[in-house]
Design a protein around this nucleic acid. Structure first.
Length: 582
RNA sequence: GCGGUGGUGGUCUAGCCUGGUAAGAUACCGCCCUGCCACGGCGGGGUUCGCGGGUUCGAAUCCCGCCCACCGCACCA
C-alpha cells in the first residue's frame, strides 16, 4: 500500500493502535529515550525473555539471579565505568551552551583525536587558556572543563556524599555474586550466571524509537572459565553451523561483506579466539532464527580494538537488518578476560580466585623467611612486634629478592637488613593452585530483539496488516469468536473462552463487528489461531479454526481440543492436523 | 548538542501563506441487520489544534521560548 511510508512508520502505527508500545510521558509531551509497553507488548517481551532464559540458562544448567539496579559508586569505580564512561565538557558562561571539550579542542585547534584523547582536565584547561578558546556559537568565555558521565547518578539515603549510579549493564551484579554462585556450583567451573533486568544509560541524544532507549532491558550472562582450559564441551553440537562474520582484519582492509564459514573454520583460522564465544554466537543466531529472523538477515561484526569496551579483548556484535536503520546491533559477544573479577578483588580485598587441583601434585621450590628475634630486638626495641608482623605479611619471595639485590628492604618506616631474617629454601609438594576465572559474555538488548521480531513479523496482504509472529512468542494464542451475536452463539463462545483460559492458554474474546472485521483485528494482534463458534457448533460440538498466516480453515471437535492446541503451540503438529480442512 | 522539516479527535489528513473561535476519512460506541475475511442502515460521543508566553477586540493560523518526532552531522561503554 503506502510504499512511501517505511515499515517502521507502519509498524509504529500498529503498535500504538493495538497496544504494543508508545512513547512514555505522552501527556507531558514525552521524553526521548523512554517507552511505555502496552498489554500485547508486555506479553511479547515476557515471552521473548522466557524463551531466552530457556535457551541460554535452563537448557545449559546455568544460574539465574536478580541484582539491584542502583549500585554504590565503588562498584563502578572498580568496574572502570567511572573512568571510561565520562566525557570532558566546557560550558559557555555567556550563552550556557555545552560542548564536548575534546571535540572543541580538536576542531578549533586542529589537533588529532588521539592527541586529545589522552588529555586530562588540567591539560585541556591549560590549552584552552593558552590558545584563548572561546564559545564557537557566541564567542563568550568558557567555564573550566568538567566531566559529565553518561550514567544516571543518584544518592543513596539522605546523605549527599553517598553516591549511587543506575547500572549501565547488568554484568557487575553478577560479578559481585560470583563467590556465592561458585559455592552453589561447589567450586566447579565452567558455569554461568545470567540475569534479565533493566539498565540505565543517560544517552546524549537517543533516537530511533525502541532501538535506542535510556532505560532498557538487558538479557546477559557471564560464563566463568579456566583460561588454561578454554574448551567448550558442547562444541561438537554446533561446529558445523554456518555463521556470517566480518572479522576485524577484513574490516580494516575495507571489506564489508561477511564471510560465510562454519564455526569450526572460524576457530581453526583463529578468527574467533574462544570456543565458548563461538558457541554462544551460534546459539544467538539460532535464537534469532527461531524468532523469525532469517540467517541472511543476520551477521556478526567483530569490533575493532578502539571500538571495544574497556573490559573487552575480543568482541562481536550480532546485527539484524532493519528496514529503516540498516544493520542494528541486537547482541554483543565479548571476551572480558579476568578484568572484572580482578578489579573487584583489588577494590574489595575479597578473594575471588578458584582452586584447581592438579592431576598430579607437582614439586615447587619455596622460599621461607623467618624473623630473627635477637637482632630485631636489638635494632628495633619497642617496635619489634610491628616489624615482625610486617615481615610476615609480605611475600617471602619479594623480601628475599630485595635483600639479595640491594642488601636492605624498607618495610613501612623500618629498614630490614639480612641479619634480621633467616632465609631458607625448600621443596614443597603442591596439589593445586588458585586462579582468577576468565569471562565470556553474551548480552542481548531485549527491546531491540522485540522490535526486530515485530518488524520481521509484519506483512501485508490485500491492504491488511498481518503480524506473523512466531507461535512460540505470540502474545495471544487463540481468538474466540461467535459467528454472529445471537441464537446463543456468544454464550457458547464465552464458554469455550473460559475453558481455554483455565487450561492456561492466552486467549481473547471478541464479538463486536462482522466476523471478517474481527479476523482483521486478530491478524493485526498477531494471534495465530481464530476459533469461531457457529450454528454447527450447537449441533455437533465442532468449531472452525482459522490460520492467521494463510487464512485456511479446519473444523475440529471441542472434545480434547486443549491437547491438540498444546501440540500445535509446541510445534509438534501442523495447522492442517488440528482438524478436517474445510 | 548543531542544522533542516514537522506536531490539528484514537489514526491519517485538510485548514495556517491571506487571523474571525475546527473539517473530512477512518477507527470507536449503541441499536437494527448478520451464516466465514474490513457488508449495510440509523443514531452517538470524542479535538484546551505539542506545551508556555506574547501581539490582537479576536490566534490552529502571526512572533518568541521550550518539548517531542523524523532526516543529516555528532554521540551510542
Amino acid at each position: 500500500m503506502n510504499s512511501k511510508v517505511d515499515k517502521y512508520e507502519r509498524l509504529l502505527k500498529l503498535a500504538k493502535s493495538r497496544g504494543f508500545f508508545w512513547e512514555a510521558f505522552e501527556i507531558y509531551g514525552g521524553v526521548s529515550g523512554f517507552l511505555d509497553f502496552g498489554p500485547l507488548g508486555v506479553l511479547l517481551k515476557r515471552k521473548i525473555s522466557d524463551m531466552w532464559i530457556k535457551w541460554f540458562v535452563k537448557n545449559e544448567g546455568f544460574l539465574e539471579v536478580e541484582t539491584p539496579i542502583v549500585n554504590p559508586e565503588i562498584v563502578f569505580k572498580a568496574s572502570g565505568h567511572i573512568d571510561s564512561f565520562k566525557e570532558p565538557a566546557f560550558k559557555c558562561l555567556k550563552c550556557d551552551r555545552r560542548f564536548r571539550a575534546d571535540h572543541l579542542v580538536e576542531e578549533e585547534l586542529g589537533l588529532s583525536s588521539t592527541e586529545v584523547e589522552s588529555m586530562d582536565l588540567k591539560m585541556l584547561q591549560k590549552l584552552a587558556l593558552d590558545k584563548g578558546l572561546k564559545c564557537p556559537e557566541c564567542g563568550g568565555e568558557l567555564s573550566e572543563p568538567y566531566y559529565f558521565t553518561t550514567m544516571f547518578k543518584t544518592f543513596i539515603g539522605p546523605y549527599m556524599e553517598n553516591i549511587g549510579y543506575g547500572r549501565p549493564e547488568a554484568a557487575q551484579g553478577m560479578f559481585l555474586a560470583f563467590k556465592r554462585a561458585l559455592e552453589l556450583k561447589r567450586g566447579k567451573l565452567p558455569f554461568a550466571i545470567a540475569q534479565v533486568g533493566k539498565v540505565l544509560r543517560n544517552e546524549i541524544s537517543p533516537r530511533q524509537g525502541p532501538i535506542r532507549l535510556r532505560e532498557f532491558t538487558i538479557m546477559e550472562l557471564e560464563l566463568f572459565i579456566d583460561s588454561e582450559d578454554p574448551k567448550c564441551p558442547k562444541m561438537s553440537d554446533v561446529e558445523n553451523e554456518f555463521l556470517r562474520v566480518i572479522p576485524a582484519e577484513a574490516r580494516m582492509k575495507g571489506y564489508e561483506e561477511p564471510l560465510e564459514l562454519t564455526v569450526r573454520e572460524y576457530l581453526d583460522k583463529g578468527l574467533i579466539t574462544m570456543e565458548w564465544l563461538a558457541y554462544f554466537m551460534v546459539k544467538a543466531k539460532q535464537f534469532m532464527e527461531h524468532l523469525g529472523i532469517p540467517h541472511d538477515c543476520q551477521r556478526f561484526v567483530e569490533k575493532l580494538p578502539w571500538e571495544r569496551a574497556h573490559y573487552s579483548s575480543q568482541g562481536f556484535d550480532q546485527e539484524i537488518y532493519l528496514d529503516r536503520w540498516g544493520w542494528v546491533e541486537v547482541s554483543g559477544h565479548n571476551y572480558r578476560t579476568d578484568y572484572d573479577l580482578k578489579r573487584h578483588m583489588e577494590y574489595s580485598g575479597v578473594d575471588m580466585t578458584v582452586y584447581k587441583r592438579f592431576e598430579k601434585p607437582i614439586n615447587v621450590r619455596k622460599i621461607q623467611v623467618e624473623p630473627v628475634e635477637e637482632t630485631i630486638r636489638r635494632d628495633f626495641r619497642e617496635h619489634s612486634d610491628t616489624v615482625v608482623k610486617l615481615i610476615m605479611s609480605i611475600k617471602p619471595e619479594t623480601l628475599a629478592d630485595g635483600l639479595i639485590n640491594s642488601n636492605a628492604v624498607k618495610l613501612g618506616d623500618y629498614l630490614i637488613k639480612p641479619e634480621h631474617v633467616k632465609i631458607s629454601e625448600r621443596i614443597v609438594e603442591e596439589k593445586g593452585k588458585r586462579f582468577i576465572p576468565h569471562v565470556i559474555e553474551p548480552s542481548f538488548g531485549l527491546e531491540r530483539v522485540f522490535y526486530a521480531v515485530l518488524e520481521y513479523a509484519y506483512t501485508e496482504r490485500e491492504g491488511r496488516a498481518i503480524l506473523k509472529l512466531p507461535i512460540a512468542v505470540a502474545p495471544i494464542q487463540v481468538a474466540i469468536y461467535p459467528l454472529v451475536t445471537k441464537d446463543g452463539l456468544p454464550e457458547k463462545a464465552l464458554e469455550v473462552y473460559t475453558r481455554l483460559l483455565n487450561s492456561g492458554f492466552d486467549v481473547y474474546y471478541d464479538d463486536s463487528g462482522s466476523i471478517g472485521r474481527r479476523y482483521v483485528r486478530s491478524d493485526e494482534m498477531g494471534i495465530p489461531l481464530a476459533l469461531t463458534v457457529d450454528y454447527q457448533t450447537l449441533q455437533d460440538n465442532t468449531v472452525t479454526l482459522r490460520n492467521r498466516d494463510n487464512w485456511r480453515q479446519v473444523r475440529t471437535n471441542l472434545n480434547g481440543i486443549e491437547n491438540r492446541l498444546r501440540s500445535f503451540f509446541a510445534d509438534e503438529i501442523s495447522f492442517e492436523n488440528l482438524g478436517e480442512p474445510i
